[in-house]
């Protein structure tokens, strides 16, 4: 399960259990620089646990985890500015306007306020929120809030972007638009992305590579996805069915 070049994420024989419940066992995979990898799995397959381990919010019980050359849990502060997360919910702070929310990562990294504001506005433009920067979260729609959340993650120019079911709470059309916009930005700026989702369509739409997680074990299936697969209805459908079969079998 290796990526070409120097991997930004490198997991080796990772294990994680909560009490007697083994959530992850023998998990190995890499994500190379500039790659967009989707980690697919049914609810309870442990994909959020993998994401939390990569984020460094929980430690792995065994095995090795390296993110941008550091252990994300034990060397938590070393990933300052190298990693950003877009969550399932937008997590905007209600007392900050859209642009103030977008700039928060930059302020944490110590960028002067005026410069941070300028960068945040540029990214809001980039995610198609021109003119909405001075609105508060309650004045924005769900899709607009999620766009602010993406701008907030991209603002810090991270080496790695983690997406935790970022589009799953949006309606189909908005989700599709946002996915396409994000994938285009990620490719344009050569961002490395690990995208956790349970929706096969989301994964196939965005990812260069799809990994299907086996509950309590490792990766059950790994498939590369390129433009030829996306453009061929037949091949796309066949791959969709194959992934669905593996996910169904693992559920």
């Amino acid at each position: 399960m290796s990526a070409a070049g120097n991997p930004v994420i490198e997991l080796r024989d990772v294990r994680k259990a909560f009490g007697s419940n083994v959530v992850i066992e023998r998990l190995d995979f890499d994500v190379g620089k500039g790659e967009i990898v989707a980690l697919l799995g049914q609810t309870g397959s442990g994909k959020s646990t993998v994401l939390n381990i990569v984020m460094g919010t929980i430690p792995a019980d065994a095995g090795s985890v390296r993110v941008a050359g550091s252990d994300p849990y034990r060397q938590f502060a070393r990933l300052r500015g190298k990693l950003a997360v877009s969550f399932q919910t937008d997590r905007l702070l209600p007392w900050r306007t859209a642009v103030e929310n977008a700039e928060i990562g930059l302020l944490v990294l110590g960028m002067p306020k005026a410069k941070a504001r300028q960068v945040a506005r540029t990214w809001l433009d980039r995610v198609k929120l021109t003119g909405a920067g001075d609105l508060y979260p309650h004045q924005l729609s769900g899709g607009m809030r999620q766009r602010v959340s993406l701008a907030r993650a991209l603002c810090v120019d991270p080496e790695l972007v983690l997406l935790d079911e970022s589009f799953s709470q949006l309606d189909h059309v908005t989700s599709q638009t946002l996915r396409a916009d994000f994938a285009s930005i990620a490719r344009e700026f050569n961002k490395t992305c690990l995208f956790v989702t349970h929706r096969i369509d989301d994964a196939m739409e965005m990812a260069d590579r799809v990994l299907v997680l086996r509950p309590g074990a490792g990766i059950a299936l790994e498939e590369g996805i390129d433009a030829s697969i996306r453009s061929s209805l037949q091949r796309r459908s066949a791959l969709h069915d194959k992934i669905a079969a593996v996910m169904g079998a693992e559920a």
């Binding site: 433009d125 980039r126 198609k128 929120l129 021109t130 899709g143 766009r147 991209l154 638009t177």
Partner: peptide
């Protein structure tokens, strides 16, 4: 950093 792109408020 991001290129300047003239956008419009999405899905407003």
């Amino acid at each position: 950093m991001a290129a300047q792109v003239s956008g419009k408020p999405a899905e407003s």
